[in-house]
């Protein structure tokens, strides 16, 4: 069990309605289903991951978050989760707006480009950082829009997005991941 899943799951109130955007193989959904709420579904672009979710007995909609979030009505979920995929979208700003429209609250996690190991890698090696959370080379990474925790906080402030930071540690230097609960 990834530690991140535990933290995310603890942010969700029991019996609430949840959408996991980019739910991958459904591990997080499965954990939440078993422990927090069964009213959860996922949106996933990869066919093989969709099959993995179905094997786990999860409700999944095959689709593209950049195009398909618009079919959900305003505030139709209590929580919308976006776990480590924001940086891979062509238009992350649009996705954030859609998350905040569809969900009453959005839980967003990002791989932190400001993490000290990332900084040191770039400083001393002079090459694009490769870490546990950022395992790809520059030429094959799906990550188009890397940001740091500080960048994300600045963005939210600029756009008047509320960050509900209770129990969250977003120390820009020492965190590999930023985990945010945001709302409009």
């Amino acid at each position: 069990m990834k530690k991140e899943f535990n933290i995310i799951a603890n942010l969700i109130k029991e019996n609430s309605k949840v959408l996991d955007v980019g739910c991958g193989d459904g591990e997080l959904m499965k954990y939440i289903t078993e422990n927090i709420t069964s009213d959860i579904r996922g949106l996933e672009i990869s066919k093989s991951n969709v099959q993995k979710c179905i094997e786990k007995g999860l409700t999944v909609i095959e689709g593209d978050a950049e195009k398909d979030l618009k079919q959900f009505p305003l505030s139709s979920f209590d929580y919308v989760i976006l776990s480590q995929t924001l940086q891979a979208f062509l238009d992350p700003e649009n996705v954030i707006n859609e998350l905040l429209r569809v969900g009453k609250k959005a839980i967003v996690t990002i791989p932190n480009f400001g993490y000290w190991k990332v900084r040191i890698h770039l400083l001393f090696q002079g090459t694009m950082p490769i870490t546990k959370n950022l395992p790809n080379e520059w030429y094959n990474t799906p990550n188009l829009h890397m940001c740091t925790i500080k960048d994300f906080v600045n963005y939210c402030n600029k756009k008047n997005i509320k960050i509900n930071s209770t129990n969250l540690n977003y120390n820009n230097l020492f965190s590999q991941l930023g985990i945010f609960v945001i709302e409009k």
Binding site: I54, T59, E62
Partner: peptide, 15 residues
């Protein structure tokens, strides 16, 4: 799928 989602109904979809 879109018609059902727009009502917030419980729907899964796979191609």
């Amino acid at each position: 799928v879109i018609a059902l989602n727009s009502l917030g109904k419980d729907v899964g979809f796979a191609e």
